[in-house]
């Protein structure tokens, strides 16, 4: 419920900003962007919500295409029930497509292969804590950026990540989750 409210508020802020902003194309070849924020998530294969610190750096090498690297660092679970992760860090790098460059609004979709380095909050049959494992993962993004000034933007991002932890005493090791992030981003155009 808290996630829904938070999401609705962020969409509202972006919509309001759209109506107030000046018209200029920022999303074009040469744009360098970076940001970091707190990102809540909801897991798809278990009733758990997590909180991450998320950040990315992105560069537009064509008007409609960019490369982007993302990092997610697990902070904690939101719920009182047993958490799925003890520790989790994920790294992704991939390609983003920006179909529409009208005005200041820049919707996008993205595909990023990556890897999670995770230590799950589970014990093996001998009651020993599980160690770290590398989990191949993929991240799909959809979102939009609103450029409010030469150097600042507001953004909203929904990320789906897929992965499968192995060597577990439980049947389902899927790590799939939706991660929601929004906030203030910074940009610099490296080309005139």
């Amino acid at each position: 419920m808290a996630l829904k409210k938070w999401f609705i508020v962020m969409v509202g802020i972006l919509s309001l900003s759209t109506s107030l902003a000046q018209e200029e194309i920022y999303a074009r070849n040469g744009l360098l962007k970076a940001t970091a924020t707190i990102a809540p998530s909801t897991m798809l294969n278990r009733k758990l919500n997590n909180v991450y610190l998320s950040g990315f750096a992105e560069y537009f090498f064509e008007d409609h295409l960019s490369v982007r690297g993302d990092i997610l660092w697990y902070v904690d679970g939101l719920d009182q029930q047993p958490k799925f992760y003890q520790q989790n860090t994920a790294l992704y790098f991939g390609l983003f497509y920006h179909p529409n460059r009208r005005k200041n609004l820049d919707p996008y979709i993205g595909f990023e292969p990556g890897m999670m380095i995770s230590r799950l909050n589970l014990k093996d049959a001998q009651n020993n804590a599980l160690g770290f494992q590398a989990i191949p993962s993929v991240s799909l993004h959809s979102g939009l950026t609103f450029y409010v000034w030469k150097y600042f933007n507001f953004y909203l991002d929904i990320q789906y990540i897929h992965g499968n932890a192995i060597n577990l005493p439980i049947k389902n090791g899927r790590t799939d989750e939706f991660i929601f992030s929004a906030g203030l981003g910074f940009q610099l155009n490296c080309k005139k």
Binding site: A134, I135, P136, N164, I166, N167, L168, P169, K171, G173
Partner: peptide
Amino acid sequence: DYITGNSEDHISRT
């Protein structure tokens, strides 16, 4: 490539 998954009932495969 590095691939992980499940093989049979509670057997993991890399």
